[in-house]
Simulated scan of single mutants.
Amino acid sequence: MPEILIFLAASEEGYAAPAAFGIQDYVWVSIAMLVLIGVFLWKKVPGMIAGGLDNKITEIKQQLDEAKNLRAEAEKLRDEYAAKIASAEQDAEKMMEGAQREADAILEKAEADSKAMVARRKRMAEDKIAAAEREAVADVRAKAVEAAAAASRDLIAERHTKDADAKLADEVISSL
């Protein structure tokens, strides 16, 4: 393994400065910085940074545009509602009695509609529950039939050997 030669060279100030291969420390720092910058350029780090910044700038511009649009919409809505409020205040006394009558009628209609809707939903829920019960019973019956068939098959397979089959065939033939 090659050994790195480190020399201590006396500097002009009188103290010993480290040196390797006869090169002073400030030269090594410069070489290291050049290598680091070279690696950054080779790996295209400035391009990645610039691309990231460009993407962030684009995103911020989109957010600013969206904020401007939202602000314009909010101002438009504010102006619209301010005009409606001014108009409503002028007509409020005239409309109060009519609104009260309409509110009472709407309330009665809403109560009737909600009762009808509750009854409809209750019927639908009951129908769904009944259908689920029928499906569950059908599933249980199907599973019971499958289990019975499997048990029958297993019992027949266990109890009927060649001799039992021959005996059964003889009994059937003799009964004829």
Score class of each variant (00 low, 15 high):
R123C: 05
A67L: 14
L34Y: 00
K167Y: 13
D170Q: 13
Q63H: 09
A20H: 01
E80N: 14
E12Q: 13
D113K: 05
M1N: 01
A150D: 09
M124C: 05
E59R: 10
D165G: 00
K162Q: 10
R101Y: 02
A16E: 06
Y81N: 08
I31R: 12
A131W: 05
A92H: 10
I6C: 02
R120W: 11
S30A: 05
M96G: 00
L176K: 09
E97G: 01
A130F: 05
A92D: 12
V172S: 01
Q24F: 01
I23M: 12
M96K: 12
M33F: 11
R71A: 00
A9I: 08
A9Q: 14
L41H: 03
Q90H: 14
A99Y: 01
I57V: 15
K143D: 06
A151M: 06
V118T: 15
V27Y: 06
K61V: 03
V45N: 06
I60E: 07
G98Y: 04
V172R: 15
L155T: 14
D79Q: 09
E80I: 01
K115P: 01
A164W: 04
A67G: 02
M96L: 12
S30R: 09
Y26G: 03
M96D: 04
P2R: 08
G38Y: 04
G14Q: 03
A72G: 02
L36Y: 00
E75Q: 03
D54I: 03
A88S: 11
E126I: 03
T58I: 05
V35R: 11
S175Y: 10
A130H: 04
I156V: 14
A157Y: 09
K115H: 11
E3Y: 13
K162C: 02
A112P: 04
S87Y: 05
E75F: 06
M117E: 07
A88E: 13
Q62M: 13
P2E: 03
E97P: 01
G22P: 07
A164R: 15
L64Q: 13
R121D: 07
A92V: 13
K44T: 07
E12L: 08
A74K: 07
F40K: 15
A149Y: 03
V39W: 04
K109S: 07
A169T: 12
L176Q: 12
V137S: 02
L176G: 14
A86N: 11
R153D: 15
A169C: 06
R71W: 07
K44P: 00
F40D: 15
Q24H: 12
L176H: 07
K122G: 06
S11A: 14
E111S: 07
E12I: 07
D79K: 06
I23Y: 04
D154M: 01
K143L: 06
V145R: 09
P2N: 07
K128V: 08
E73D: 10
L155D: 01
A142S: 12
K61M: 10
E66K: 09
A110L: 05
L36T: 06
E13L: 08
A164M: 13
L155A: 07
S174T: 12
E66P: 02
E102G: 14
M48Q: 15
G52E: 11
V29G: 09
L34D: 05
A130P: 00
V137A: 13
